[in-house]
Design a protein around this nucleic acid. Structure first.
Lengths: 153, 153
DNA sequence: CCAACCTAGTTGATGCTTCAACTATTCCTT
DNA sequence: AAGGAATAGTTGAAGCATCAACTAGGTTGG
């Protein structure tokens, strides 16, 4: 067994700041969206990706990849969104195994409303408290992390 | 209703990189710790904080604050850790409402083993792929976020 | 053309998180 | 010193995530 390369004090400080900060941040986003709009962050993410897709629809697998969720989780979440009337599922003509998730008009409206509040929260607790150059660095850093992680399994 | 101040393209890119990256990162940490050591990230965090405390023990409230968890969640998680023999709870002499969470020797050993693997994962997917100055910026950024969020409610 | 294999998506069981309600103790105010 | 308010921690129910198992449709090589 090789000796682990421990983090130095600064690396540890930075890593922990990220871990704690991101936990707390997601928590507040979640509570905010849920209390004001009855949506969890992962439901919100799904609506966002769909709203940006052509025809506001995407294949399940593509959507899962896009929203960094497992297919299983997406299936469950989609069922909930469907029962709220925000999304509906259609079978795919070309590939009979395939399913399209489609944002409904009601879903689009709900997203519009939620996004207004959400962006405020993102600003208040993230964008507006971080120095612009640090924000760019955060972007670069996590882009590298994503590259290293590769596509969702 | 005031018009929301939307994020510009760069801000949106950076924010999303963070959201996606942190989701994926936590996921892999969790799977890694769970498969190799049977610990979730939040269990691991608790063990870490306890190991650093004087006498390897902390009051529940302090531990919750420290590990960015709600008291309720900590209670549940602690029960699981206790049933695994990694932690034990003692009542506090001064304050009869209070409870100390105490890391057992077995818990310390388990943590030592887990930490070796964990630090490797953190390096592989985070520390080693980020430019050192970007890492510092990430640290600064999330320190500001934490400051803005204030203490755990 | 068919057998083995691969991909798309769902399902149900299990386990973790959240929320609100609860007990027990201590603090504070008068 | 009494009564109300605040604090410490736990509990159970409900909701959400994860995993493995499953159906069903497509793909490929002999």
């Amino acid at each position: 067994m090789t000796e682990p390369r421990w983090l130095d004090a600064a690396q540890q400080r930075d890593w922990r700041a990220f871990v704690d900060g991101s936990v707390r941040l997601t928590e507040i986003m979640d509570r905010d969206l849920k209390s004001r709009h009855g949506l969890s962050v992962s439901e919100y993410e799904i609506l966002v990706r769909l709203s940006e897709a052509p025809q506001r629809q995407l294949r399940m697998a593509e959507l899962a990849e896009n929203a960094s969720q497992s297919r299983s989780r997406l299936s469950h979440t989609c069922s909930r969104l469907e029962s709220k009337g925000l999304v509906k599922r259609d079978s795919c003509p070309n590939d009979k195994r395939g399913v399209y998730a489609q944002l409904t008009d009601q879903g689009f409206t709900a997203l519009e409303r939620a996004a207004r509040d959400h962006v405020e929260t993102v600003r208040t607790y993230f964008i507006d408290v971080i120095e612009p150059q640090d924000l760019e660095a955060v972007g670069r850093a996590f882009a590298m992390v994503l590259k290293r992680l590769g596509p969702t399994t």
